[in-house]
């Protein structure tokens, strides 16, 4: 209960902070549209040379792109800013201030930042997704919709756990500015369904970097490709990654030696 109140307070602070800079909303929206435009041109180029890509039709790939943007927006607004702050604080020793608070450290470092305007990506992603669903001309049943939402949430949890583990390496490696770059580079693989990648890469993108579960699996839920078994697998992996992230975090905190003022 206390934690939910805490999340809510940080969310309010984050939103209030962003409300000071309203023009940024339009700038973010413009950037979302630029990203959308680049993505659409990419799709158009691909489909000017072929009619399907690894068994995925054009509207299906559009749906993948919508989910990619949507999930990307969630990452950029709620997950990545927290991880970047954590990274900086480990490096300059000011993490002490978070660790000495009477709440669980991992929860606190995961909820402190929220970039409200980044949600424009979620908005644009949703629009793309709706357009794609209309183009697919298929009835989306209640079961499918539920599976889609469940897959999306599980994917989000996996991405968070993965990001936290990556960031936690800062406790040992100290200077890891490039992690953001690394993560974005790997996440970009999600723009296309992971089934097109060669076996070894597909395994990596499924179990090492859960991009497959964050984007492809929700897309499979929408396009009638998902078996109950893979949804169950997603649940299992999400739990496993959460436990693992927790473990790595505690290990990391133990080797943290603050240097704060």
């Amino acid at each position: 209960m206390k934690i939910i109140r805490l999340i809510w307070s940080y969310l309010r602070i984050g939103i209030a902070n962003e409300m000071q800079y309203r023009v940024n909303f339009f700038i973010q929206l413009l950037q979302s549209f630029i990203a959308l435009g680049t993505g659409l041109i990419g799709l158009w180029l691909v489909f000017s040379h072929t009619t399907e890509l690894g068994g995925w039709s054009q509207p299906e790939l559009l749906a993948v792109m919508g989910i990619y943007m949507l999930m990307g927006g969630i990452i950029q607004s709620a997950i990545q800013p927290n991880m970047q702050r954590l990274m900086n604080e480990i490096q300059d020793g000011s993490l002490d201030f978070a660790l000495t608070k009477p709440v669980d450290g991992q929860i606190l470092v995961s909820i402190r930042e929220f970039r409200f305007w980044q949600l424009t990506d979620v908005l644009v992603g949703l629009i793309v997704l709706v357009v794609a669903i209309v183009q697919l001309q298929e009835q989306i049943g209640i079961g499918q919709a539920l599976a889609f939402v469940a897959a999306l949430i599980l994917g989000g949890i996996m991405i968070y756990s993965f990001w936290l583990m990556l960031t936690t390496t800062a406790f040992w490696l100290i200077r890891i500015w490039e992690l953001v770059n690394l993560f974005q580079g790997l996440y970009a693989a999600g723009r296309w369904p992971v089934t097109i990648y060669p076996q070894w890469l597909r395994l990596g993108l499924t179990f090492l970097v859960p991009v497959a579960f964050a984007v492809t699996v929700p897309a499979e839920a929408l396009t009638n490709r998902l078996t109950p078994l893979s949804l169950l697998g997603a649940l299992g992996l999400a739990l496993l990654l959460m436990v693992l992230a927790r473990f790595v975090w505690r290990l990391g905190v133990r080797s943290y030696s603050g240097a704060s003022a």
């Binding site: 490696l173 200077r175 890891i176 500015w177 490039e178 992690l179 770059n181 690394l182 993560f183 974005q184 580079g185 790997l186 970009a188 693989a189």
Partner: peptide, 13 residues
Amino acid sequence: AQNYFYLVGVIAE
């Protein structure tokens, strides 16, 4: 380590 993190990010694209 940072250099390799960086390069993996670069070759992903």
